[in-house]
Amino acid sequence: MIIDVTVNGVQRHLKSRSGDRLVDMLRKELRLSSLNADCLQGRCGKCLVFMDGRIVHSCLIPAFKARGGTILTFEEIAKNPEVNDIEKAFHATHTQPCPFCHTAKTMVIFDLLSRVPLPSEEDIVEALDMVSCPCGDPIGLIQTVKLAAELRNKRKFNREA
């Protein structure tokens, strides 16, 4: 079947079978390298995308459910200045994620800051729960997100001023 869906701002007609997962359709048809399918259970976060404005695990979604929808992947999200803030915060707090979860952590922090400009620790922990990382420093990451929020708000405020 053909799935009509807007991916990263471009209207696409993607080939899929009824049992395909969204992550597989996006990888196969569009070769989006930011996406990976690892756990297939909504744990690792390597398949996170924004679907109709909400962050979701694309491994948990049958491809056919994306019909008529809007998908944003890291390739598009990375163009936002917010991602630069997040990168700077990773560096400053020495919490640079490994290549396996870098995209996923950036996506969840991006999602959090666009919903909650000044997140509490509880908000941060809730957001980071979307990415399983057995090796990272959870306390350090909380500082990272707080700093990213600060940089973002400062940049936005300065621009508006």
């Binding site: 997962r21 948990l60 049958p62 459910k65």
Partner: peptide, 28 residues
Amino acid sequence: LMAGGTGIVGSQPSRTIQLPEQVASIAK
């Protein structure tokens, strides 16, 4: 009748999701 589908999809370890002959996507 599939709304979110998380239960059906998340409980299947195989790459391809097993579904019955007919499925209706009702989430929207």
